[in-house]
Simulated assay, not measured.
Amino acid sequence: MSATVTSRVSSVLRKGLFVDKVAIVTGGGTGIGKAITQELLYLGCKVVIASRKIDRLSKSGEEMKQNPYRHSKSDLSYMQCNIRKEEEVKSLMDYTIEKYGRIDYLVNNGGGQFPAHIEDITLKGWNAVIETNLTGTYLCSREAYRTWMEKNRGAIVNIIADNFRGMPIMGHSGAARAGVENITKTMALEWAQYGIRVNAVAPGTVYSETAAANYGDLDVFGQAVEQIPAKRLGETQEISGPVCFLLSPAASFISGITLRIDAASSLYMHPNFYISDHKNLPPYKWSDDPVEDDTSSAPKSKL
């Protein structure tokens, strides 16, 4: 039997900075969410992580509880919650208040998508992705506001994606994340009077075992490196640090922004997407003659 490898956890922020603070992290048991949770624990925070898949969540939660790098005053709890379900989200907030007495921070990291061209996405698949990423973020934010933050202040960080040039092969997710970015701005304005800051973080191509498993045989990460100016993939800890910064007092005058964490990828080529040569966009013609339709042989864009 191989020994369990303990992740080295640290932070550029002062250890213990979040002692006596309480955070909820949706999707906090895997990938970027797990990195955020571990850094919060290092900083002394009490954290409730939530996910729809309780088996994976409990396994990850117990592992993080045993991590020797977390602060002695931190604590971790986990709860099954489908963020698409209003009553389950309300239960998550009630549980956190009952357990820890407050909700200082909310990180809306829970989400999901699958690779597919727009024309191949079924309505069921479309609704599932929109409801998980957009509706789930809305419900968690609304209930955190109603349950605690309206009267006690707080900070929210929404995790979106690099969708600023469209999101080929994941148009459902791109649409949902664009909605989250917009509602981030609206919440930042509407809730400013209650002392609530709301920001978004847009990771570029960040490797995690969970994300790699979701893509199956598609070599998303291998193809992306060439199109990242840094010529390497991001790491989950490179997302968790900025998230904790946005929650911290150092960001007390920052609200309504989207922080791109992508090594300038959004200014460069489009990762994982290539359009084959074609002649299917006819030139402009001032003529009454019908334009020849040659779209039947159009090659499909590929990863």
Rank of each mutant, 00 (worst) to 15 (best):
residue 25 V to G: 02
residue 219 D to Y: 09
residue 166 G to A: 05
residue 301 S to C: 13
residue 118 I to R: 03
residue 59 K to S: 14
residue 190 E to S: 08
residue 212 A to K: 11
residue 52 R to C: 08
residue 110 G to C: 03
residue 52 R to L: 08
residue 75 D to G: 13
residue 254 I to R: 08
residue 174 G to E: 02
residue 238 E to R: 06
residue 224 A to R: 04
residue 90 K to F: 00
residue 164 F to Y: 08
residue 228 I to D: 07
residue 115 P to V: 10
residue 24 I to V: 12
residue 9 V to I: 15
residue 190 E to A: 08
residue 45 C to G: 02
residue 191 W to K: 03
residue 255 S to M: 06
residue 48 V to G: 13
residue 93 M to S: 08
residue 16 G to W: 07
residue 101 G to S: 01
residue 98 E to D: 13
residue 132 T to E: 04
residue 208 S to E: 00
residue 36 I to L: 02
residue 58 S to L: 11
residue 222 G to S: 08
residue 160 I to G: 01
residue 241 G to Q: 14
residue 151 K to D: 11
residue 250 A to R: 11
residue 141 S to V: 05
residue 177 R to E: 06
residue 17 L to F: 07
residue 237 Q to W: 13
residue 19 V to W: 09
residue 158 N to L: 05
residue 251 A to Y: 06
residue 146 R to V: 10
residue 119 E to V: 01
residue 104 D to A: 09
residue 222 G to T: 07
residue 52 R to P: 06
residue 150 E to D: 11
residue 125 G to R: 00
residue 249 P to L: 04
residue 165 R to F: 06
residue 290 P to I: 05
residue 169 I to G: 00
residue 36 I to Y: 01
residue 82 N to W: 01
residue 42 Y to G: 08
residue 213 A to C: 11
residue 81 C to P: 01
residue 273 F to K: 03
residue 170 M to E: 14
residue 277 D to T: 13
residue 35 A to K: 03
residue 119 E to Q: 14
residue 15 K to E: 12
residue 79 M to C: 11
residue 137 T to N: 11
residue 68 P to G: 12
residue 291 V to S: 10
residue 249 P to G: 04
residue 57 L to W: 04
residue 271 P to E: 05
residue 270 H to F: 13
residue 249 P to N: 07
residue 268 Y to T: 04
residue 19 V to E: 14
residue 42 Y to V: 09
residue 18 F to D: 06
residue 59 K to A: 15
residue 14 R to Y: 12
residue 118 I to C: 12
residue 179 G to R: 00
residue 301 S to D: 15
residue 286 W to D: 15
